[in-house]
Amino acid sequence: MDEVESGYGTMHETGAGKIIVKSARRPAEDTVVIVDCTPFCKRLGLMWPEGQQLWFVKDICGVICAVFTWMLVGYAEFVVLFVMLIPGTSAVYATVHGLLFTFLSTMAVSSHMRTMLTDPGAIPRGNATKENIMKLGLKEGQVIFKCPKCVSIKPERAHHCSVCRRCIRKMDHHCPWVNNCIGENNQKYFVLFTMYIFLISVHALYMAISHFIGCIGQEWRGCGGFSPPATTVFLIFLIFEGLLFGIFTVIMFGSQMQAICSDETGIESLKEHATWEKKSRWLSLKSVFGHPFSFTWFSPFSTPRIGKTESYLYTV
């Protein structure tokens, strides 16, 4: 008699394949809201991918961090446009840098929204039932694992998130700044978010330092529509913000790219020895950003085409 982990307790499998449930357990209260926008968008005549659902984690800390992130991007946009570019600069300089900064900011916020509102690769809660396990077509003696916290069939390389209260496929970590886990389905958007935040930080630093030096050289004559003390405060805070988030995001971007290229998530690098066959760097990149390579790799509005799902990512 082979013992098998089930969704609601321990099962025993006999030679005839009969499974008996011995005990029961229910998953903890859900913390995720999943909304299907397809009917609403169809009524409004809007384009919406069929079956695409919005995912939102009900975590007050994550919500505060996400809103704070938007506020910081909005502050940078305000200072760049209304303190440095629009008042007292040439039309060409203001247009070029204004459009570039606005483009990068839009891409950063869009990447953040896609990361936050995309299902990271969650396993359905409570799916480790007798019926679902039978559907897997397991061979005699084959062992599967269940998560005792969310009561789900746990595929290889899936890990439980205590905030989302679900097992997440290829979970790297839970990030409060995007109020979501970083996993199989949204890692691309998180990488783009860190990249675009780093780029706008560098751009803002360059413009803020140049503007500050120029204003000192002109003794603050014609340096914007604000008083010299107010302009100084705006610029100093923007420089501090650019340095802080530039350093933070370039570190996160580097760690994510290293994890993708090594085909090993942050959690796996700390807790496990690889039991799966690792892909090459190029195949690992395509498994996150899509196949084949195109400029859509850099767009948060494009859902990556992954191709055939690996066998270890089974769900029922």
Rank of each mutant, 00 (worst) to 15 (best):
K130S: 01
W70N: 04
F226I: 04
I144A: 02
C261V: 10
C61H: 01
F253A: 10
L72T: 13
T296A: 11
H211I: 03
A274P: 00
D2P: 12
Y93V: 13
C223I: 15
T38G: 10
I213C: 15
V316H: 05
R125A: 13
E277H: 12
Q52L: 15
S284M: 14
S311I: 04
S269W: 08
F240E: 01
R165P: 00
H203W: 15
F193W: 11
L99C: 15
G222N: 13
M252E: 00
A230I: 14
F237V: 10
C65E: 10
E241C: 13
A28H: 06
F237N: 02
A28V: 10
L244Y: 13
F293Y: 14
K146Y: 02
K130T: 11
R157I: 13
I197K: 01
Q256R: 12
D263S: 03
A108M: 14
K135G: 04
N127V: 11
K135Y: 07
T265M: 06
V151N: 08
A208M: 08
T38W: 11
R165M: 11
D36F: 11
F293G: 01
K146S: 12
V73W: 03
D30L: 05
G45M: 10
S284G: 12
I64H: 01
R221C: 08
S269C: 06
T69W: 09
C161Q: 01
K271G: 02
I197D: 00
H273M: 03
K139H: 08
D30Y: 02
V96C: 13
V80S: 09
K271V: 12
K188I: 09
E77T: 12
Y8F: 12
P148W: 08
A94Y: 08
T265G: 05
P148F: 14
I213V: 15
A16M: 06
A66I: 05
V73Q: 06
S227A: 14
V33Y: 05
N127H: 07
S23C: 04
K154R: 15
H12L: 15
E264M: 10
S105H: 09
G15W: 13
R305Q: 06
F295M: 07
F190C: 12
G214S: 10
C167N: 00
H112E: 11
G121E: 05
I34M: 06
D36Q: 07
T315Q: 09
P292F: 13
K286P: 01
V163L: 14
D59W: 15
E268A: 14
R169M: 12
G51F: 11
